[in-house]
Design a protein around this nucleic acid. Sequence first.
DNA 1: GGCTAAATATGATGGGCATCATGTAAATGT
DNA 2: ACATTTACATGATGCCCATCATATTTAGCC
Lengths: 187, 187
Amino acid sequence: MKVSREQMAENRHRILDAASRLFREKGFDAVSVAEVMKAAGLTHGGFYGHFSSKDDLIAQTLAHVLAADSGGGGDLRTYVGSYLSPRHRDNCAGGCPTAGLAAAIRHQTPAARSAMTEGLRSQIDRIGKALPELDPADRRRAAIGSWAAMVGAVILARAIDDPVLSDEVLEQTRAWVDAGISQVSAS
Amino acid sequence: MKVSREQMAENRHRILDAASRLFREKGFDAVSVAEVMKAAGLTHGGFYGHFSSKDDLIAQTLAHVLAADSGGGGDLRTYVGSYLSPRHRDNCAGGCPTAGLAAAIRHQTPAARSAMTEGLRSQIDRIGKALPELDPADRRRAAIGSWAAMVGAVILARAIDDPVLSDEVLEQTRAWVDAGISQVSAS
DNA sequence: GGCTAAATATGATGGGCATCATGTAAATGT
DNA sequence: ACATTTACATGATGCCCATCATATTTAGCC
């Protein structure tokens, strides 16, 4: 049955949100189109009215979730602390899309890779802006190095099957990033 | 046809090597059992004589490749430099299994996760041993923080669709890790 | 109010893949 | 040397999934 324009727009939004959560939680391959539609409260039939293919859904979902990805205008240390927390590690579905999906981007279409690239570019810029006390070269290096460590630590912490070591990876990386930012600031 | 004991052992080894390369290059899901066997010079029929399932192959492949993963007894800065090189970024199939597979471990069986955990534990220890000038607490923090940054940077560099930014992520992370190691050493 | 087009539902279709069944020939032990 | 076991090959089987075909209902326009 046909639905109103605004209902359709809301449906589309729900599909993207559902896809975003499911992809982060289970990976692109392990989520079926039908599963996404069901999570959005629809059936699989209407899917191709919204997207031309599953690859198209992936690309649009990435653009959607990376645009929404704030990173916060707040204090960088606070952000690092929450990023490198057990809570974030355990919340794949609602957590950072870069940590959850960056490694899988390699196997996706150019459109998806492009969306991820732009998301990373702006994330690096955002972190850089949170380090105004540094000169531009140090700022760039600190932003990229910190971001790589943060993403890497969450990926490793999620891969590790021992809660003690997993917690340690998060906490030591937090201390390391904090120290790196401070040391550069002091140099 | 039956083959000799040693031929069978060699076949098994070839299967694991082929699987290791294919998994790193294309991911666990995108590689079929038949593809692995073909790459090993066999047909898919004999597979279940060597492994009880594809999941079993994944777990054994991880144990195989992570045991072989040296990380080198050489200089840490040299290792970091080669790890964070465009050459390594572009060589998924032959590159670090952690960078290629860690993010996918989340969706694998407990046996696979356990193999990855042990691999990471020994890798962190190895990096720590390459920092003998630090006291134990700093050493541990530097080892974990550096390793997280290295893995994260390679994953990000591989995800990015712009060679300039991708190269920059590698190079800036290399500089950041170098500086971090030095700063801690000097503190 | 009635017509038309569009959004979604239900129900195929076809291919890929993990796993299994069976055949075959060679290695191993006596 | 022979029997037997066994490692591998060939050839199903059945499931899951992306995509398509068709039906249905209702929004949007006159």
